[in-house]
Design a protein around this nucleic acid. Structure first.
Length: 192
DNA sequence: GCCTGGATTGTCT
DNA sequence: GACAATCCAGGCA
């Protein structure tokens, strides 16, 4: 275990399908809690399932910004989802953070998730945002510096044998295997 | 354990 | 005006 280091902009400035599996095992730290990422999905602008497929809009502006920033969107009338922008400016790429495991701030997250079992605190994209109090006010936050949220490498290597499969909840783009799961997780996640 | 249906609102066509 | 990168409760096995 080396000392935790924030990931720099260089780490994020590559294709979302390369970045996504490397985010497994990394730590997303907020002001009062931190989470180890165990499930991700990649989205690109040439991908019909991506919010950026039809070009820039006010909502998806962060995905077209530089890599290493937080893209938060609101969906199904009641849920937020958190993404990390990837690639260079104007690339329109991002990695959706689907699930995580608690690192610090367990009590805070339990309170925000209102009595859910620990294994159900962070095992879905909407739940992860609820537990970490992520909403649209954090859209565009810089994850590489002194913002409210930071992505760290705490010395945990990405898994050598990540589970790869199709993305979840889509009407289109289900044929591309752009979802990665860390096999070391104890969460009950779809494994294929 | 697995499956089904309802909730609810911002966003784009 | 329709849809959406979801979650949860409830029913059944």
């Amino acid at each position: 275990m080396t000392s935790p280091l924030p990931l720099g902009p260089d780490f994020f400035e590559r294709d979302a399908t390369e970045l996504a599996p490397d985010l497994l095992g990394k730590v997303l730290a907020g002001p009062d809690c931190a989470v180890r990422i165990v499930e991700v999905e990649a989205y690109r602008s040439d991908d019909p399932a991506s919010h950026t497929f039809r070009g820039p809009t006010p909502r998806n502006a962060t995905m077209f910004g530089p890599g290493g920033h937080l893209y938060v969107y609101f969906t199904y009338g009641m849920h937020h989802c958190a993404n990390v922008s990837a690639g260079a400016r104007d690339d329109g790429q991002a990695v959706l953070l689907r699930a995580g495991e608690p690192v610090t701030g367990l009590e805070v997250m339990r309170a925000r998730r209102h009595g859910r079992a620990d294994r159900e605190l962070l095992d879905g994209p909407g739940k992860l945002c609820q537990a970490m109090a992520i909403d649209r006010s954090l859209d565009g936050a810089d994850l590489t510096g002194d913002g409210p949220l930071t992505l760290y490498d705490d010395g945990t290597e990405p898994p050598r044998d990540p589970i790869v499969g199709p993305r979840i909840g889509l009407r289109v783009g289900v044929d591309t295997p752009w979802r990665w799961v860390d096999p070391r997780t104890t969460l009950r996640l779809r494994r294929r």
